[in-house]
């Protein structure tokens, strides 16, 4: 057992970080939220060049995956830089179609996967719950911007034609819409349900990794602020109350990280759920800390900090909220 990233994984994460640092992602996030998807799509293309989307696509369809550990590394960086768009949903769709192909249903994979691997297309995905739920079909993220809107209903995979009204999330860079009913039936049978299970786990894992990256970005920015902001003649970061809150924020992130990568290694339901609880809560706790320590300036839309502050809570609840994931953890205990 050597539970450390390989040199290649480390180098991959570093190069993504460097590329995103140079890409002015805050401007792309603001444009995405403000109605101009152009800079976000350009960013998408650069992530494709870096090989991010191919990580979720099997080799037979121009990818290199699925590689969950590499995807987890990538999604930490996507979270750290608040990259907008249906990033989780695109890789989950890729895993769904790849798995369907493996189970003997290669049709949808042939049509869609090469475009997803190359970054030419984006996809979003909604996996319906039981009909008894009030909204059995959940929102699909960025359904108005995605090239393919896929919906799983039980053992049926549909490509929706269109969507309901676009509603803005508490994070304005997340645009929510329910897929239109009907559309094109892409596949049906037990394979669809099995593949959807894989896709859901991957989506949960990727969201957990993204939460971790969001939390790290919030902590880094807040530590920098606490070192530079002076009150009572001293940097506020020298005060124990501030220090201890930041220490607890680091602690939660440091213990969530191994759960995320451990879940990427095993892909087991209970491990993925545990990672989601820990990373989602740690990311959200980092947001609360960041807001408190920045004070009033942190409560402004104008400060870029808001791009991460508003993302932490929706990510905590997307693709498995804490209560559902805690129940899944216990359900998977032998």
């Amino acid at each position: 057992m050597s539970f450390l990233p390989t040199d290649e994984q480390r180098a991959f994460a570093r190069s993504l970080d460097a590329m995103l640092c140079a890409s002015d992602t805050p401007a792309a996030v603001r444009a995405w939220a403000g109605g101009d998807p152009g800079p976000g799509r350009a960013l998408w293309g650069r992530l494709a060049e870096a090989g991010v989307w191919a990580l979720a696509v099997p080799e037979a369809y121009d990818g290199v995956g699925p590689l969950p550990v590499e995807l987890a590394h990538a999604f930490v960086e996507l979270g750290r830089h608040a990259v907008p768009g249906p990033v989780v949903e695109t890789v989950a769709t890729a895993v769904l179609l790849g798995e369907l192909a493996r189970l003997g249903e290669p049709g949808p994979a042939k049509r869609l996967l090469p475009g997803l691997a190359s970054g030419e297309w984006t996809a979003t995905l909604a996996i319906a719950g039981p009909e008894s739920e009030r909204h059995p079909v959940p929102y699909a993220l960025d359904a108005d911007r995605a090239d393919a809107v896929l919906v799983v209903r039980g053992e049926e995979l549909w490509r929706a034609h269109g969507h309901g009204p676009v509603e803005v999330s508490a994070d304005p860079a997340r645009r929510l819409a329910r897929p239109a009913p009907g559309g094109e039936l892409l596949a049906e049978g037990t394979a669809v349900a099995v593949a959807a299970g894989h896709a859901r786990r991957l989506a949960t894992l990727a969201t957990a990794a993204q939460s971790l990256g969001v939390g790290r970005a919030l902590l880094d920015r807040t530590v920098a602020y606490a070192r530079q902001r002076t009150q009572f003649g001293t940097p506020i970061g020298a005060f124990q109350a501030v220090k201890h809150r930041l220490a607890d924020t680091l602690l939660a992130l440091e213990f969530a990280g191994p759960l995320v990568f451990g879940a990427a290694v095993t892909s087991a339901e209970g491990d993925v759920a545990a990672a989601k609880v820990a990373a989602g809560e740690a990311g959200y706790a980092a947001a609360r800390t960041a807001l408190q320590i920045h004070g009033a300036v942190g409560y402004t839309e104008e400060l870029d900090l808001s791009l991460w502050l508003r993302k932490a809570r929706p990510l905590r609840d997307a693709w498995g909220d804490p209560a559902a994931c805690r129940a899944a953890v216990l359900g998977a205990c032998s």
Binding site: V223, R227, P235, G237, Q240, K243, A247, L250, L251
Partner: peptide
Amino acid sequence: EIQRDIIAERLLGLPKGR
């Protein structure tokens, strides 16, 4: 409390204080 001081100062690089 001492551990959190150590975490804050040595891992996060916050200034030493009283």
